[in-house]
Structures are given as structure tokens and as C-alpha cells.
């Protein structure tokens, strides 16, 4: 009996992978802006430490190198998605948005 159990244990078997399929992303990234000259740069500050300073400096350097201009600055909480009205304001006021800063 014990030998049979050992034998069965040693047989090659099939097991499932545990991760399942990946769903489609809810939204695809927007295409890049091909030329920045004259475009308006927005900032979405996620309120992580120094995110505002980092993104603003980045926007200034980008603007000085490309001829873009600094536009709207919005702030959101890092842990949740930006409210619809913030996204709508950025959409109407600027052509590209700098966003995202970690701890």
C-alpha cells in the first residue's frame, strides 16, 4: 500500500498555472505629441514629497529646450485616480501632462 502511494506520488502529473489570463486595459495611452514647440505643458502633481518641485523643474527645462510653454498645474492625491473634473481641465487647457512621482 505504502509502495503504491510512493509510486503514484512519483508519477509525472499536470498542475495548473495560478495566474489566469490578462484582461484588456481599459484605455490605451494617447499618442505622443510629435513636436513640442508652441504646445502647452500641464503638471499633475500627485502630492508625493517634492513631486511638485520635480515636475515643475522638468516642465521648465522641457519648455526651454523645445519652445513649449508651461500651462496648468493640478494636484491630486497619490493613492487614487484624479477626479474627472481635474482630467477635464487638463484636457481643455494643455497638450501634454507630466505626471507621476513615487516615494
Amino acid at each position: 500500500m505504502g509502495e503504491q502511494m510512493e509510486e503514484r506520488k512519483r508519477e509525472r502529473i499536470k498542475v495548473y498555472a495560478p495566474d489566469g489570463a490578462v484582461g484588456s486595459p481599459a484605455a490605451a495611452p494617447a499618442p505622443s505629441v510629435p513636436v513640442l514647440a508652441g504646445k502647452r505643458i500641464g503638471i499633475l502633481d500627485n502630492a508625493k514629497p517634492n513631486a511638485g518641485a520635480l515636475l515643475e523643474r522638468l516642465a521648465q527645462r522641457l519648455a526651454s529646450r523645445t519652445g513649449a510653454v508651461l500651462g496648468l498645474v493640478e494636484t491630486k492625491n497619490a493613492a487614487v485616480a484624479a477626479p474627472d473634473e481635474v482630467i477635464a481641465r487638463l484636457q481643455s487647457e494643455v497638450d501634454l501632462v507630466l505626471a507621476g512621482s513615487a516615494d
Binding site: 502529473i13 498542475v15 498555472a17 495560478p18 495566474d19 489566469g20 489570463a21 484582461g23
Partner: peptide, 28 residues
């Protein structure tokens, strides 16, 4: 919406150590 059927993998033997080795290769 349904997901694709999960993959079936070969395991050398019905044993937790063998499973850990197999899963470790996939980061599971």
C-alpha cells in the same frame, strides 16, 4: 467576459517541493 483556460504544466511528481521548484521558475 470570460478568461482563457489556465495553462496546464508538467510537474515531476505530486509533491510540494517539486511544485515550489516549478512555481519558483515562474515567480509564483
Amino acid at each position: 467576459m470570460t478568461g482563457d483556460a489556465p495553462l496546464l504544466l508538467d510537474l515531476a511528481e505530486d509533491d510540494p517541493d517539486a511544485l515550489m521548484q516549478l512555481y519558483d521558475e515562474h515567480g509564483w
